[in-house]
Amino acid sequence: MKNKILILHSGNEKEFIEGIEFIENLGFKINQFYSPIPINRFQNNRLHKKTIIPAVGLIFGILGAIGGFTLQYWVNTVAYPLNFGGKPLLALPSFIPVIFECALLSSAVAMSIVFFAKRKKKNPVVIDNLLSKDEFVAVLKRNSEMEKNVDVWAKQESFKLNVIVYDD
């Protein structure tokens, strides 16, 4: 299916932001921003979505620590209680290294699963191409009035505004 998208792109971050502000001041909305590098200012001001990664890391870290302790407690006191030179079966200080490692491992693995699992549909090829050429890209919400003005805006020196047709 043929589809149309309106994109604004620039190879320079400052000019790109100026372009975005120009478009937004005219009252038009932007669907998505793409960047070849992290831009902190964008993350703070726009599309302020929260990520669950830190919460997952904390929860699974705690679960890992509890799991590490429970395993050692159960093995040493219930499943196979062995007397190592008179040491107590519940020798807490010697459990700490394993508890610590289990907590960190569980937290890191859980966070990475959440990170990898968040796959979305593929980008239009045109956006990938622009990104690989180090261009900053914004996809605008389509609007008939905007399409009429594309030619005027395209004359702006600092950024490029294109209507791109692609196969969906």
Binding site: L47, G57, K122
Partner: peptide
């Protein structure tokens, strides 16, 4: 590349996980 899109939200998650993994 696991479907990396390069959206601002992708970068935000990327920054977050890199800092958290570094702390671990």
């Amino acid at each position: 590349s696991l479907g990396w899109q390069g959206t601002i939200f992708d970068w935000k998650r990327y920054d977050k996980i890199m800092i958290l993994l570094a702390s671990i």
